[in-house]
């Protein structure tokens, strides 16, 4: 009996294994958790607008994990689209090419703003990159010397700020958001404060000095958040004098709990980011395998639907959720790039 069952099980799994390499009729997407909410909205609307196609499956897991999955190969058993909150890296393109994934089409879907916010009961913050650098960097310049960060409260950093103990909840190293925070805030502040020059004077070359500017203090005043923005929000709920880093979309969904800080006197809104006035923003992308177009049913239509003004224009559901729509010429360029078959 047992052996019969066992033989049956083996036979079933053997036939299963051979018959699964069949064509897939559902788009599979993986990647960035920042792009996930937007991809979900588009996927859901796609399923409703095109009832003849199945609703795409969107996996979460992070830009790097998604691109790694994407680069594993061409064929129905591999995913079709990778969402990314940063541009694909040279190394990733190379590893893609090794697995035979050569024709990759890059689609830029819009911009994501990164905002600094405090609890709604707190005072207004008018931040400058230099304030954040002085408050959060591991080493700052005092009297021309590079020293370990001595500041304990925000009013020591800038007399206009309240006397709050410095507690900032910043995205952890694995987040794509951290990269933007480093480049657009810490580095800019570091240059303004003279930290970059002080480092180069001390004999570091430019690259190492820049990397060194990214170092965040480790004495507990700057806390890495490895989870999502919901975790940052609960930290601020618990510590009313904390400051958190959020995506614009998340902030806009929680305006009754959070007060946003201005950066260089610009209030972060979809408009100010679209115009390029608010400095801390980044483009969001997804990558499509050209070899899958026309093979996976609905893939072509999905990309066209995603890039249409109905989805990513200024009055689209994505903009409503918090995506900053790209200027019209750029959207037109993205669409043209896709239809003309431009690859990387």
């Amino acid at each position: 009996m047992k052996s019969l069952k066992l033989a049956l099980a083996v036979a079933i799994s053997a036939t299963a294994m051979t018959s699964f390499a069949h064509a897939r009729d559902q788009i599979q997407i993986a990647g960035s958790s920042t792009v996930l909410p937007y991809a979900k909205i588009v996927a859901e609307n796609f399923g409703e607008t095109f009832p003849n196609f199945k609703t795409p499956v969107v996996e979460s897991g992070g830009s790097s994990a998604g691109l790694k999955e994407f680069c594993r190969g061409v064929g129905a058993e591999f995913i079709d689209i990778a969402n990314a909150s940063r541009a694909i890296r040279e190394k990733e393109i190379a590893s893609c090419a090794e697995a035979g994934v050569t024709d990759i089409q890059e689609i830029r879907i819009g911009y994501d703003g990164i905002v600094f916010a405090t609890d709604i009961s707190g005072p207004d913050f008018a931040l400058e990159p230099i304030d954040l650098y002085k408050g959060l960097a591991a080493k700052v310049v005092v009297d021309g010397e590079l020293v370990d960060n001595p500041y304990k409260t925000w009013n020591e950093v800038n007399a206009d700020f309240p006397e709050w103990e410095i507690a900032a909840y910043i995205p952890g190293e694995k987040h794509g958001t951290r990269e933007v925070f480093e480049e657009k805030v810490l580095l800019v502040g570091c240059e303004e404060a003279g930290g970059l020059k002080a480092r180069m004077d001390a004999g570091m070359d430019e690259d190492t000095s820049e990397k060194d500017c990214y170092a965040v203090r480790k004495d507990g005043a700057a806390v890495d958040i490895d989870g999502d923005y919901t975790e940052t929000l609960s930290r601020i709920d618990a510590n009313k004098t904390g400051m958190g880093v959020f995506g614009l979309a998340f902030y806009e969904n929680n305006t009754d709990k959070l007060k946003v800080a201005t950066m260089s006197d610009v209030v972060p809104t979809t408009e100010s980011i679209a115009k390029g006035e608010y400095p801390v923003s980044r483009p969001l992308f997804f990558y499509v395998k050209k070899a899958h177009l026309g093979v996976i049913p609905g893939l072509q239509e999905y990309v066209e639907f995603f890039t249409s003004d109905d989805m990513t224009g200024p009055d689209s559901p994505l903009a409503e959720y918090g995506l900053v729509a790209a200027p019209e010429e750029e959207r037109e360029m993205v669409r043209e790039g896709f239809t003309s078959g431009k690859t990387m």
């Binding site: 993986a30 996927a43 199945k54 609703t55 499956v57 979460s60």
Partner: peptide, 20 residues
Amino acid sequence: LLLIGMVAFVVDAPATPLDP
């Protein structure tokens, strides 16, 4: 389940164990 792609946004009800 994270690694085998089941941490995903799935709208359509799976008809068989082979569907997402």
